Simulated scan of single mutants.
Amino acid sequence: MVVIYGIDKHLNPIKSQLSDVIHRCMQSVLGMPEDKRAHRFIPLANEDFFYPDGRTDSYTVIEINLMKGRKPDTQKALIKGLFEAIESQLGISTVDVEITIKEQEKYQWGFRGITGDEASDLKYNVDV
Rank of each mutant, 00 (worst) to 15 (best):
R40K: 10
I114F: 03
T74M: 15
D57T: 11
G81R: 00
R37D: 01
R40P: 07
R37C: 08
I22V: 07
K15M: 15
L78V: 04
S19Y: 14
I64D: 13
G113C: 10
L44W: 01
F83H: 11
Q108I: 04
Q27L: 08
V97N: 05
A77Y: 08
K76S: 09
G31W: 09
A85V: 00
I114N: 10
H23C: 08
G110Q: 02
L44A: 15
T94S: 14
L90F: 10
D53R: 14
G54V: 01
S93N: 05
Q108P: 10
A77P: 03
H10N: 08
D8C: 08
A38S: 10
E105P: 02
I86Q: 05
T115S: 01
S16G: 11
I101H: 00
F50N: 12
D48M: 13
W109T: 01
D35Q: 11
P43R: 01
S93P: 09
K76T: 12
T115P: 00
I92C: 05
A85D: 07
G81D: 09
Q75R: 15
S58K: 06
T94E: 14
D96N: 13
V95Q: 12
T94Y: 07
K102V: 08
R40D: 07
I14E: 04
Y107K: 12
K71M: 13
G54C: 03
T115E: 03
I62Y: 01
H23E: 04
Y107W: 06
W109I: 06
R70P: 11
D73E: 11
